[in-house]
Design a protein around this nucleic acid. Structure first.
Length: 235
DNA sequence: GCGACAG
DNA sequence: ATCTTGTCGC
C-alpha cells in the first residue's frame, strides 16, 4: 500500500484553507528530479452534478511504453465545494484514499490542474506533492492565473506563463495546431522536466496521440466508468 | 469597484 | 466538472 504524510486535517473552512496554503507554500521545492523516473501516475475525480459523491482514481503507467501497470479507484464524498484557488481541498482527500490502495509508489504524479501556476503558488499538484513527498506537476486544460503568448503551432513548442513577473508554467502544444495545455511544476521537479514528461506521455508517440497526456486521459476514463457503474472500485 | 476564476 | 447533437475544418 502506498503511503503519504498526513500533514493536516482537510475538514476546514475556505478561510482556513487559504491560511493553510499560505503556511504550506514555503515547503514547496522546485528543483530537478532526484532520480530518473520509470513510472508516472495520472489522477482525476468525477461526480454527478449537484451530488456529494465523488469517484476518484489513479492510473499508473510505465514511462517507456505507457503501458498501464496499476489502477485504483474509490467512491467517496467531497464535503468541500469547488472554489477557484481551493480545488485541492475538494479533490485531494479522495485521491489520497485511492493512493493508499496502490501497491506501487509512482515515481512522479501528474494532476489535472495546476502546480505553482496558482495565485498563492500552491495549486493541487504542489499541495499533493507535499503529502505524497514525491515529484508532482500539473497539466491543466485552462488557465487559473497568468498570461502567455500563443506558442508556435507545432507540437513541442511552448511559451512561458507569467504572473507578477514570475515564470509559473508553460502553455505547451502537445499536438500540431491544437490548443495548448498548461504545465507547471508541483513539487520536487522543475518546469523543463514537467514539459518533457508531458510530451513523453503522448499515446501515439510523437504527436499522433491526443491533446491530453495519457496518465490524465486514463484516469479520466477510469473515474467515469466508475461513476457509471461500468467498473467496481478496487478493494 | 469591476471582472476573472484549475475542476 | 456535468448535461448533450450536430457540425466546422483539416
Amino acid at each position: 500500500m502506498a503511503h503519504y504524510l498526513p500533514l493536516h486535517d482537510w475538514n476546514v473552512s475556505p478561510t482556513e484553507a487559504v491560511a493553510l496554503q499560505q503556511q504550506l507554500r514555503s515547503q514547496i521545492r522546485i528543483e530537478p528530479l532526484a532520480e530518473p523516473p520509470k513510472t508516472i501516475a495520472g489522477c482525476d475525480i468525477s461526480f454527478n452534478k449537484f451530488e456529494e459523491t465523488v469517484y476518484a482514481g489513479i492510473v499508473v503507467l510505465r514511462l517507456d511504453t505507457l503501458e498501464t501497470i496499476e489502477e485504483a479507484g474509490v467512491v467517496s464524498t467531497a464535503p468541500f465545494p469547488y472554489i477557484p484557488g481551493l480545488l485541492s481541498f475538494r479533490e485531494i482527500p479522495s485521491l489520497l484514499q485511492a493512493w493508499a490502495k496502490l501497491s506501487i509508489e509512482p515515481d512522479v504524479v501528474m494532476f489535472d490542474g495546476h502546480g505553482i501556476a496558482h495565485p498563492r503558488r500552491i495549486g493541487i499538484a504542489s499541495h499533493a506533492g507535499l503529502f505524497l513527498n514525491r515529484p508532482t506537476f500539473g497539466c491543466g486544460k485552462s488557465v487559473l492565473v497568468g498570461k502567455f503568448e500563443e506558442p508556435a503551432p507545432e507540437r513541442g513548442s511552448w511559451s512561458p506563463m507569467m504572473h507578477y513577473r514570475e515564470v509559473i508554467g508553460a502553455a505547451l502544444r502537445t499536438k500540431n495546431k491544437v490548443n495548448p495545455v498548461f504545465v507547471s511544476p508541483g513539487h520536487l521537479i522543475d518546469l523543463e522536466t514537467a514539459i518533457s514528461l508531458t510530451l513523453q506521455c503522448d499515446g501515439g508517440r510523437n504527436g499522433t496521440g491526443y491533446r491530453l497526456p495519457e496518465p490524465t486521459r486514463r484516469a479520466h476514463n477510469l473515474v467515469n466508468a466508475l461513476r457509471k457503474g461500468e467498473r467496481a472500485s478496487t478493494v
